[in-house]
Nucleic acid binder design. Sequence first.
DNA 1: GCCGGTCACAAGGTCGCCTTGTACCCCTGC
DNA 2: GCAGGGGTACAAGGCGACCTTGTGACCGGC
Lengths: 308, 308
Amino acid sequence: MPELGALEVLLAVARGGSLNAAAREVGVSQQAVSARISSMEAQTGVPLVTRSARGSALTPAGVVVVEWASRLLDVAGELDAGLAALRQDRRTRLRVSASLTIAEHLLPGWLVSLQAAARQRAQAGPEVVLTAANSDTVIEQVRRDQADVGFVEGPQAPRDLRSRVVGRDALTLVVRHDHPWTRRRRPVAAQELAATALVSREPGSGTRDALVAALRAALGPGAVLTPPAMALSTTTAVRAAVLAGAGPAVLSELAVADDIAGHRLRRVPLDGLDLHRELRAIWRGPSRPPAGAVRDLIAHIALRERPA
Amino acid sequence: MPELGALEVLLAVARGGSLNAAAREVGVSQQAVSARISSMEAQTGVPLVTRSARGSALTPAGVVVVEWASRLLDVAGELDAGLAALRQDRRTRLRVSASLTIAEHLLPGWLVSLQAAARQRAQAGPEVVLTAANSDTVIEQVRRDQADVGFVEGPQAPRDLRSRVVGRDALTLVVRHDHPWTRRRRPVAAQELAATALVSREPGSGTRDALVAALRAALGPGAVLTPPAMALSTTTAVRAAVLAGAGPAVLSELAVADDIAGHRLRRVPLDGLDLHRELRAIWRGPSRPPAGAVRDLIAHIALRERPA
DNA sequence: GCCGGTCACAAGGTCGCCTTGTACCCCTGC
DNA sequence: GCAGGGGTACAAGGCGACCTTGTGACCGGC
């Protein structure tokens, strides 16, 4: 498996059309670029570049690999932006606190496009410092002025804080690809779901609370809900349990989109339950977001997520 | 930026709950795991793991990073599967030839899920050898028995070959986020598109041919089509040109989905043009796919893509 | 109180990658 | 015809990252 750095060099060669141009772009010597490409070709067993005395061009296989690598580096850039935001050592400019679901699945993309937008205006983007926690903690941090802005999901916008909807999410019922429910023709009813032992998050999690609230709304406050088959503290653990065959789960669509696209999990239609929820930015103080970085951030995100 | 190997180690720690378990899983010494995690924490400036005498657990930041890393490694796995398929040195078991669009955007996912499905049955998956070329070349290779199965897009299923639809694609008009067309209220009509100088692929490309065919179908065979602003030989180059402000382009939705999600490009609605096209598996010989690997592959892909 | 499990510290070896210096090739223009 | 600029290849040497082995300390269960 080639390293990310080697792939970046390959992309630079593709862009520049020569090893030399790539070397200048990356900031190393021409020989280093040549050696890295060679070692990558040896490692993968695939010829990627044809070298000639008047430049280097990609082979047909190289064109395809560049496309794949470009996707990979995009995702790597999101991770990098996220890590930069988690780094606490700098003087904080903009303290963001976000629920786990939002931090895991949306924030990296927001950060990347925020920086890209800033770069386009030839400005430096804000230095974002991120804290990820559960929804209650996020609200508490905003209240105590430990965060300039928070992002939470769910309808419970606290009254003492201001908020703005910046996107939507929905919970969805998922099972492993070989679960009997994948062969159902009818959607699962609320009553049936309540009678099923699910793999669930721990009590207090926003995802679990939202499901319970929706079930009680559909079946009445006195409805008997089957206790979970197991309660785990992270989405990743829940997903792993479902993949191990522990049973169905109800998770955010954001969390399972990749697994559904990769056909590791399957979505099962539900009937009679409203599991949509709004994603909100929350902040303290006056009813409009304060001028400056906080307002810019919220406006940027709302613009990003609205058309989607 | 942490290396992929380091992220794999981190995921192993998250799964196993201890450095030692991760070391066994990855196949290195416990000290190596400890050092790698430490160096990663130093590199990123983010504490990821809390170590204790009875195991190691992720910090809150670590949980989020693990989720991000997991996405990254999924994409890396697709690249790896693709590279393995491009490697020609093995004895070929199953020779696949695919059009550029399919090879770039769909095949890695197919390969990963094919191997996963095989592993689940405790079998070794087929050794796929991939050739990526334009549609005409793919068809020619299947005809000459240089490929066991081909994948092409577009309606032109050659009559002397057998085929089966395994998915759908559509071309879409895209512009840079700051292009005037992003502020239009009405869709762009076929006539208007024909009068626009687009950034385009080279003549002979399936994408370009499909657009021309759709325009002629809408406007009549004698319609005057404005020549492209520029003609480039890869989708990547076209995308780069659009991002550089060279003008609008018509590209496969598969090719621009990431850019649209990342808000680098914007889709512009079209009116009066049918730009859908079918993705087909093609093969030689009898009307049913021959038994064995070719049939398994086609069935697997059709099952994957149908519900989407 | 022993034992299995966990993690940390230290020393030494290997290997990958980068740099510098040099040589060759191709095309262009005078 | 020949110089010059841009391109790539080969070779030697240095630095640093990573891994291994050996050893010590801490925690909890039987």
